[in-house]
């Protein structure tokens, strides 16, 4: 039995926590970058739906960006609820605003597709407080939602997915893929994603987590390979799709049953 105290996690869990930290900080900083250089869904919702002036929408967005940077920096000192809660809230608001605005393929399922992004900050906070199993449970659930939603979108031949496959096939493999072939591949990918989503809820298989991590990293890297380096934020904002399965792999590796040193419990 492994006895764990929140302030001094065993080495095997430190890497899990580091993976979680990266899963939170990089997307948060990417969101902050977007807030200062682009027009986010929250900005658009405020301006187009709520009728606020563009100036106010921009002020809200940029203030959020500053808060995201400060929150991210504070996480290196200590994962605190204020910072983790703010990052989670902003990413959730982005998902909800995208769903409300419409105008994107499958915008209606965005809150589900982005689940892992806005759940992982809360999981980090719980993890740092010693509630690792609860954190891992949240991660599994949100990852399952994200993968299942992507699987659904793939089965529906999301045009954005077709536009990832065709250029990636050309650049990575020199293959000239037809759209009909890309759709067939997406059918396979879609069922795979849905199967992975189910399995990650039911099983604690390390190979499963590793495979999902590899797949997540490949898909986020494909944004750059398909659309060019200037699309790098579209990759980093999705980092959790790859690093959260990696977190599961590290955690399950660190906590797998086997001979371990017992630490004396506090008197």
């Amino acid at each position: 039995m492994v006895s764990v105290t929140p302030s001094t996690p065993p080495d095997g869990l430190a890497s899990s926590r580091l993976a979680l930290l990266v899963s939170v900080v990089i997307p948060a900083l990417t969101s902050a970058w977007y807030a200062w250089t682009n027009v986010s869904a929250v900005n658009s919702w405020l301006f187009m739906e709520a009728g606020t002036s563009e100036r106010i929408a921009e002020w809200v967005e940029r203030s959020a960006g500053v808060a995201l940077v400060l929150a991210s920096l504070s996480l290196f000192w200590r994962p605190n609820f204020l910072a983790c809660g703010w990052i989670s809230l902003w990413l959730a608001l982005l998902a909800i605003a995208t769903e409300q605005l419409g105008g994107k393929a499958f915008s209606e399922v965005t809150p589900l597709a982005h689940a892992v992004r806005y759940v992982v900050p809360i999981a980090l906070w719980l993890f740092a407080r010693g509630k690792q199993e609860l954190a891992i449970g949240l991660l599994r659930g949100s990852l399952a939602l994200t993968f299942a939603t992507h699987g659904y979108e793939a089965l529906q031949a999301h045009p954005g997915f077709i536009d990832l496959l065709i250029p990636t096939a050309r650049r990575w493999f020199g293959l000239r893929l037809r759209e009909s072939e890309a759709r067939q591949i997406l059918t396979v990918i879609g069922w795979m994603d849905i199967t992975l989503a189910l399995l990650v809820c039911l099983k604690r298989w390390r190979w499963l987590a590793g495979y999902m991590g590899l797949w997540g990293m490949l898909t986020l890297a494909s944004r750059i390979s398909a659309w060019g380096l200037e699309q790098w934020p579209e990759s980093t904002i999705r980092l959790a799709n790859g690093t959260v399965p990696l977190t599961l792999l590290l955690f399950w590796s660190a906590t797998r049953p086997g001979p371990v040193a017992n630490r004396p419990s506090p008197a």
């Binding site: 393929a105 045009p159 077709i162 536009d163 065709i166 890309a182």
Partner: peptide, 8 residues
Amino acid sequence: SNISTTGD
């Protein structure tokens, strides 16, 4: 620009 832009 709403359907696949790289396919057919």
